[in-house]
């Protein structure tokens, strides 16, 4: 039996989709078209918004690197990591989404370093694993950003 997959936060990204269909989920205001991620389900944050409904919207799959960094030291809780296991740095990347005109942060896919993510380069969002809990037989899922090979761009 595969482990139970639980999104680290419910409703922030698609579940049970193939990699190509994976998307972050935000909300869009029907009144002013502003997009919110993380999703805003209570109110539109645009002070000039005439008022509208907030509807779930899938964000662009691809964006460009705004900036990136890495975490060379173990972050404190509530980040989950096993202190008995040597810390493996991961990369954080801020991605500019052109259609939404916003920047969204995320971890890069495992093995992707800051050298793989020059500012302005193209990345895409893919499903990822934040941490596994063998005792509870669960996996917490998340989103990752992964560089798009130049030859894959049409």
């Amino acid at each position: 039996m595969p482990r139970t997959r639980i999104p680290v936060v419910a409703g922030w990204f698609t579940e049970d989709t193939a990699e190509e269909g994976f998307r972050l989920l935000g909300t869009r205001c029907s009144g002013c078209r502003s997009v919110h991620f993380p999703r805003e389900d209570d109110h539109c944050r645009n002070p000039g918004c005439p008022g509208g409904e907030l509807e779930e919207v899938a964000l662009s799959k691809r964006g460009t690197v705004w900036s990136c960094t890495d975490g060379r030291y173990r972050p404190p809780p509530p980040y989950v990591s096993d202190p008995a296991v040597p810390w493996v740095p991961y990369t954080l990347v801020a991605v500019e989404l052109a259609a939404e005109r916003m920047v969204v942060l995320g971890q890069a896919a495992p093995g992707v370093g800051v050298g793989d993510l020059p500012v302005g380069s193209v990345v895409e969002v893919v499903p990822g694993v934040l941490e596994e809990d063998p005792a509870a037989d669960t996996v917490h899922t998340t989103w990752h950003w992964r560089p798009v090979a130049v030859e894959a761009l049409s």
Binding site: V8, V9, P38, W66, S67, C68, T69, D70, G71, Y73, P75, P76, P77, P78, Y79, V80, S81, Y90, L92, A94, L105, G106, Q107, V114, P118, V119, G120, L130, T142
Partner: peptide, 29 residues
């Protein structure tokens, strides 16, 4: 999970220096 400060640690492990690092690399670029 309704606290954005809690969420950035839980979901991303994004410490304060991580944000400083993002700004610094952006300046370099």
């Amino acid at each position: 999970p309704d606290d954005p400060d809690w969420l950035r640690f839980r979901v991303l492990g994004a410490t304060n220096p991580a944000y400083f690092g993002l700004y610094a690399r952006r300046r370099m670029a």
